[in-house]
Design a protein around this nucleic acid. Structure first.
Lengths: 224, 224
DNA sequence: CGGGTTCTTGACTATCTTCAACGAAAGTGG
DNA sequence: CCACTTTCGTTGAAGATAGTCAAGAACCCG
């Protein structure tokens, strides 16, 4: 998932219809912290996250890291290029994933409906990544963090007596590497949002959105 | 094209085999400055650039702009999401483009070879965009500009008695909006590279790469 | 309870942006 | 064809945003 400006996630995350013809599908289970694949691995499978959260990362030679995306339920991950995985993937929480053969994306032979669903997922991915370009290239720290929280709370926030509660399974440095910031800046920005009563920090990994409209405003450049 | 770290463009830009079965294909001609499509337009066609250079852009409400990509010969542009174009596209130079029906991407019925070629182009696009994330999120101004020039000269530089000459059809603000910088910073970085004898600026839109290895070094974080 | 990791905060710094001015290049109309 | 205007690129000075370095607090896990 590319957390940018809110989009219609009802559209964005249809549950892919399962192919009827393939061999029996076994859901993959992944423990928190374990890797699903590494950059350079040959791609045999794509996956749709069915529960839990995974993290896609890339490394630069000198250790700088970019978190490419977080994979939430409904997201399809593992699109190949040149037959190889383009990032590392590991689990932030225990996760379950539905695997699909790479061949189902690359040819319609095995199941036309599934083929098309995977293709549409790839096209949505391209569009979402374009949004993320704007985020990385043109937004300030506050705008980035506000966008991040805003989109996540729309997508996976839990209603909590008028407010929305948001669990963040990733650590601050993951958020930083996703948004192109440092952990310190992320932390300071959280504090700033807390002090202006836009969010409350229930625990390090649990945020409560007090004023969603204000948060949304900040995410697109309104001041204060 | 996403100008990031050099990749193997021999692989990256195969000329898509033309479908044999479709109706006669007419090449689209586009004059410099004219638009091919706008964000929100319904997608009828994808295009492969056959000559010239096009520019894909997105705008934020307050006028901030992100150049998503430059389309050079071989690049496929116009991937749809939700049936709509996700960016504006206009021509930086007179350009010719080979159109392909959107249906050829979305179904293998019309021409399986073409369908697969377009699909592979979409997958390469995803991978290239991931590289560009690293560029936007984690690189300094010098690294960004050096990467930009390095990749472009590999891909479209012309040999010139030992050196490589590079024509830049885009203006400084296009480069800035592509790299997530300001025009002033781009301009200053060009000057800096010129003063360290790594490039020469023949005219505003013509660069000569004097020390490609040094440029490549800068693009991945070597100092000086 | 203790040790290690993660998060927060502070002080300082660097990089990049902003604002402004000027020169060069390109487009326009007489 | 030339003067005029406009746009684009470069440069300088000043300022702001985010990064770096460092220390302490909070949290987690055995």
């Amino acid at each position: 998932m590319y957390v940018t400006i809110p989009t219609d996630y009802a559209d964005a995350t249809p549950i892919v219809p399962l192919g009827r013809r393939g061999p029996a599908r076994v859901e993959t289970r992944l423990k928190a912290g374990s890797y699903l694949y590494y950059q350079g691995d040959r791609v045999e499978w794509l996956y749709q996250v069915t529960s839990g959260v995974v993290r896609l990362t890339r490394l630069l030679a000198d250790g700088r890291r970019q978190v490419i995306a977080f994979g939430y339920p409904g997201d399809v991950i593992g699109f190949p290029a040149g037959g190889e995985h383009q990032s590392d993937c590991d689990a932030l929480t225990d996760a379950r994933l539905q695997p699909y053969r790479r061949s189902c994306l690359e040819s319609a032979d095995c199941d036309p409906v599934l083929h098309n669903a995977l293709l549409q997922a790839a096209l949505r991915e391209i569009s979402a990544m374009q949004d993320h370009f704007m985020m990385l290239g043109r937004k300030t720290a506050v705008e980035k963090v506000a966008s991040f929280l805003s989109v996540l709370s729309d997508r996976v926030g839990e209603d909590l007596g008028g407010f929305k509660q948001l669990k963040l399974p990733m650590c601050r440095s993951d958020i930083a590497d996703f948004l192109g910031l440092t952990t310190e800046t992320v932390s300071r920005t959280f504090t700033q949002l807390r002090k202006s009563k836009i969010i409350a920090i229930d625990s390090i990994h649990t945020i409560i959105i007090l004023r969603p409209t204000a948060l949304l405003g900040l995410s697109s450049g309104e001041h204060d």
